[in-house]
Design a protein around this nucleic acid. Structure first.
Lengths: 123, 123
DNA sequence: TGCGAAACTGGCCGGGTGGCCAGTCCTCCC
DNA sequence: GGGAGGACTGGCCACCCGGCCAGTTTCGCA
């Protein structure tokens, strides 16, 4: 051992809470023999939040938003979602818009990732 | 500071590998503002092993595709990925295309969902 | 030495996406 | 009655996405 086994440990922070993540990054960043992972890098181990309380009040998504979100996670386009839910594409866009807003996401892919991370949906 | 916000962070080690757990315990045990959890104690966050098990090796993504995939999962657009990786948008599209093909996905959102399901990436 | 794989780049284009504006219904609640 | 919020719909438009065509270099391997 003491060879590749004793290499620098790469830790990835997978904590949603920005404050906690920041503190951890500060604390862990200065530990010798330990390094924080770059985005996309495969880490030796991960630091994950210990309580499912990541959402204040579930962020309160409406039932319709949940419907749209589930179909988004299946890779459905707005048109497909509209057909599936028997509503217009405009309405789908409307719900997607609220979703992006509530989940603080930049796009539908980001929204699905965020939702999965906080357990709103299961992949 | 010294608010309840700045309370000591309690970390629990949930790593199977005894050698890795031991090294982590040593490294993390001496960090100020951070404490390892006592058995049974509720921790602020956990350190979990990030085992390098990829997948049934049937899909075999290249390193570059993995890079692109990771950034896609962060919600990055093709333009952002291009900037991040210092390549052209066209090249990003090229890799995204291969990704959609290999992961049997209909779009980038679907690709990220598929990859997460198969454990290729971690959300 | 040739040949494939990977990575990279370009142009073009139809269709999708997301943001903006507007509006109508409905229900719950003060 | 009036307000607030949810669900729904429309038009418009800049931009993005994914697929098509084409090409380049570099690398390892037979």
């Amino acid at each position: 051992m003491s060879e590749d086994n004793a290499r620098e440990i790469v830790l990835s922070l997978e904590v949603d809470d920005p404050a906690l993540a920041d503190r951890l990054a500060t604390l862990l960043g200065s530990v010798a023999g330990l390094r924080l992972a770059a985005p996309g890098e495969t880490a030796t181990a991960s630091v994950v939040a210990r309580d499912p309380r990541i959402m204040p009040d579930d962020i309160a998504l409406t039932q319709r938003e949940l419907d749209v979100l589930a179909l988004m996670a299946e890779g459905a386009s707005n048109k497909m979602i509209a057909r599936q839910l028997n509503i217009s594409v405009h309405t789908v866009k409307f719900h997607v818009g609220s979703l992006l807003d509530k989940l603080d996401a930049t796009g539908r892919t980001d929204a699905v990732a965020h939702a999965a991370r906080r357990g709103v949906i299961e992949l």
